[in-house]
Amino acid sequence: MKKLSLRLLATISLLCSLLSFSSHAQDAPNFGYLSLEPDIITNYIGTSSKKLGFVRVTVELMIDSVDVLEIAEHHLPLLRATTIEIFGQQPEDKVKSLTGREDIRQAILKALQDHMRKETGAPIVKDVIFTKYLYHS
């Protein structure tokens, strides 16, 4: 009798856990990803006015939801141009340092969200991810 009660209790506990997991899975974010292809290749400001460096970056955008992925794709030229413009304004020391790279990433994210808010009424871009980051001076 005790074994039956323990099994029943374990089964009920397992079912409650599965129901809880199921409801959390439905509430989970439904992010989408969009690549800025081809890679971003542009110049940045070198240490002297006569010297330019270049940077090559593979950029992935995390989009709020797969439901708005098509909207983000429609604005891809704007998103790409904004990213290139921000990289082109960066000094060499910022491009080459890890903290500078993070500052650039945050600046791109903010600019993309501002543009998307202006164009669509929502920020749409959740995050900016650099999957490849190469520079040469």
Rank of each mutant, 00 (worst) to 15 (best):
S35I: 06
V55I: 15
V125E: 05
S17T: 12
L36K: 01
L18S: 04
L36P: 04
F87D: 06
V59H: 03
A81I: 04
H24L: 13
S13F: 12
G46M: 04
I104P: 02
F54I: 12
D114M: 08
S137F: 13
T58G: 14
G46E: 09
M62R: 13
S49G: 07
I71T: 15
A72E: 07
Y33K: 06
I71E: 08
A28G: 05
F21T: 07
E70C: 00
I124T: 00
N43I: 01
I104D: 02
F21S: 10
K118I: 06
G100F: 10
L76D: 02
L34H: 08
D64L: 03
L78Q: 10
I129Y: 10
Y133D: 05
I40L: 13
A111G: 00
V68S: 10
L98R: 15
N43D: 14
K50P: 00
K126E: 14
E119A: 15
V125C: 08
L134C: 08
G53Q: 06
L19S: 10
K126L: 01
R7V: 10
F87P: 10
E85I: 01
P91C: 04
R105K: 15
Q90L: 09
L14F: 12
A107F: 00
S20N: 07
L18D: 00
Q113M: 06
P29N: 06
V66S: 02
L8R: 12
L98D: 12
L78A: 11
T82G: 02
L4E: 13
F31Y: 15
V68N: 05
G100C: 13
Q90P: 05
A72G: 02
G88A: 14
A81C: 00
Y133R: 06
D27A: 14
M1W: 07
T131C: 05
T99N: 13
H115A: 14
L98Q: 14
L76R: 07
N30F: 05
